[in-house]
């Protein structure tokens, strides 16, 4: 096939998209393998002797490792809890008619729009009174405010796509509502549940504002630890970028798994 100029421009444009999307990510990863001298070089160097020193340094200190473990605990627990609480609600929204259904919808969508600072203030005061500041529990609960809506929304859509005939047949066999939910909807809806769980994990893992306000030393999460490097006169750029890479890598892999659903996850239903 002859390469026409149109095809060439198309290919050029697509390549530009790839470069645009990956450049900051590439720059972070490359800086994480640079020595401090290479990072502070002016103008910046593109080719250099890679070193693992930054990674060795952050794994030697307990701070970053501890923060990653905290993030892992919080994100996993809040995801499990969201799925546990959210899937029955999604089933009700998919299959039952009841009063106030549209209000409930509206409430879920508003939570997607809400700035965390609105809830961070009162939750800080409540946590202060209940002595819950700097605990995993407070973050696990607070993250439900954005994870539950996402789980409910994606799972409702998924459950609606399950043919109701299956449910009718099971009911004729004498299955009660909860059995139908557990034996039919959970297994058949598993793909949607998995997607919503991955989203919930990504959002929790990436969250900074609540973590910043509600935790101190003990339960510091990974994004908080990374931002805490940003003080002092000469910043340890290599360590900062290595920490950034460690934080971003796992969620990027997760995001690639759900890439087909990315828009759905971020919009609460503007597209199929």
């Amino acid at each position: 096939m002859r390469l026409s100029s149109g095809t060439f421009l198309h290919a050029l444009g697509l390549t530009a998209v790839v470069v645009f999307s990956l450049f900051p990510f590439f720059w972070m990863v490359s800086a994480s393998f640079k020595s401090q001298t290479d990072i502070l070089a002016s103008p910046p160097v593109w080719f250099f002797m890679p070193t693992l020193d930054n990674y060795r340094a952050i794994f030697a200190e307990s701070q970053v490792v501890g923060a990653v473990v905290n993030s892992l605990i919080v994100a996993t627990a809040t995801t499990l809890l969201s799925v546990l609480l959210g899937t029955p609600a999604a089933y009700a929204l998919a299959r039952f008619e009841f009063r106030g259904k549209s209000d409930l919808w509206f409430w879920f969508i508003s939570n997607r729009m809400l700035s965390p600072i609105v809830l961070a203030l009162p939750i800080y005061l409540l946590a202060l009174q209940l002595r819950l500041l700097d605990t995993h529990l407070v973050l696990i609960l607070v993250y439900l405010t954005f994870n539950l809506p996402i789980v409910v929304w994606i799972c409702t859509d998924q459950f609606k796509s399950i043919p109701p005939d299956i449910e009718q047949a099971a009911r004729l066999d004498g299955a009660d509502q909860f059995t139908i939910f557990r034996k039919i909807y959970l297994p058949l809806g598993a793909p949607g549940i998995a997607v919503s769980a991955i989203f919930s994990f990504i959002f929790s893992w990436n969250e900074l504002l609540y973590a910043l306000v509600l935790t101190r030393r003990a339960v510091q999460t990974a994004p908080v630890a990374a931002t805490n490097f940003m003080s002092g006169y000469e910043l340890p750029w290599g360590k900062i970028m290595a920490t950034g890479t460690i934080i971003v890598l796992p969620v990027t892999i997760f995001a690639l798994i759900v890439s087909r659903h990315m828009v759905r996850g971020l919009t609460m239903g503007a597209t199929k």
């Binding site: 790839v18 900051p24 990510f25 990072i39 990436n206 934080i247 969620v251 995001a255 890439s259 990315m262």
Partner: peptide, 25 residues
């Protein structure tokens, strides 16, 4: 397909880390 997949990378990047990268760039 490659371009489509790479579009997901910015969206998934931890917002705080985007700030860190910005300070370096």
């Amino acid at each position: 397909s490659l371009a489509r997949v790479t579009l997901v990378v910015p969206l998934a990047t931890t917002y705080a880390v985007v700030g860190l990268i910005g300070r370096l760039i």
